[in-house]
Design a protein around this nucleic acid. Structure first.
Lengths: 131, 131
DNA sequence: TGACATATACGAAACGCTTCGTATATTCGG
DNA sequence: CCGAATATACGAAGCGTTTCGTATATGTCA
């Protein structure tokens, strides 16, 4: 199959995808309410609807129209999307060096010892597996 | 001093900043030529000029107007900018977990053993320093 | 059934980014 | 000194994103 172009959702799209990843398939109303919770400022119902329509065109989500109330589901995985956004940033701001990105992230982050240990474990797994 | 808003240069701005970080203070012409080198498609001279003017307003660069040919210098550091872009991405796509970002970056990157070792060293330095 | 709630579709405004054309000022070479 | 080269300034078009108002269709319930 032809490889699809890089998945780089915009801000608003990411917020919606986050809801779908978290809740699973949802209606416009459900997404809208999920996004309203917590935030003081939120957007109108039809804004979410419009975005979901656009995202359907872009194949970021899949739409089930069998019932009158359409149900939307993420068509891209969270991990894949994260990977694309990450390598996009690596290209744009880190001259292509993901190592530089990791180092920067580690040095500006406040990680707990447990988290550092988790990274260490991942490092161990990859040791020797340097392909 | 009042903390300045998050530094989040756009794509074109980042490309220009990269030149300034790399070359040091430069004229519009120098930036333009640096960006043209390598790329097949490039933008016009006045586009760079306009962008630099906008970036001056945004305080992303400093402008020395003493001679007729103005000289621009980055007003934000590469490390700081990277940090801002990174934490922005962490917020938008990693639910605020920079650990998740590091793990994703590590698992989708092809790092050499030497690079992994470098990361390990950084980890060692930070051990116990869990504030 | 008729009014109301709720759904999707659509057009368009507002905004930011990027691009460039054109106007104008200054410098330089002959 | 004058024309060509080179500089900045400025306005505006084109594009994508985000937002919402309004139109229209459909379901619900008293």
């Amino acid at each position: 199959m032809p490889p699809r172009p890089t998945i780089r959702p915009t801000n608003a799209e990411l917020a919606i995808l986050a809801v779908l990843w978290h809740r699973g398939p949802s209606t416009v109303r459900e997404v809208h309410e999920a996004l309203r919770d917590g935030r003081a400022e939120s957007v109108g119902y039809t804004t979410i609807l419009k975005l979901l329509q656009i995202m359907t065109e872009k194949k970021l989500v899949k739409r089930d129209t069998r019932s009158r109330t359409h149900v939307y589901a993420a068509a891209v995985s969270e991990a894949t999307t994260r990977g694309h956004l990450l390598s996009d940033l690596v290209e744009r701001a880190f001259r292509g060096s993901s190592l530089a990105l990791v180092l920067q992230a580690l040095s500006s982050t406040r990680a707990t010892p447990a988290e550092l240990e988790q990274i260490r474990r991942l490092l161990d797994e990859r040791k020797g597996d340097s392909r």
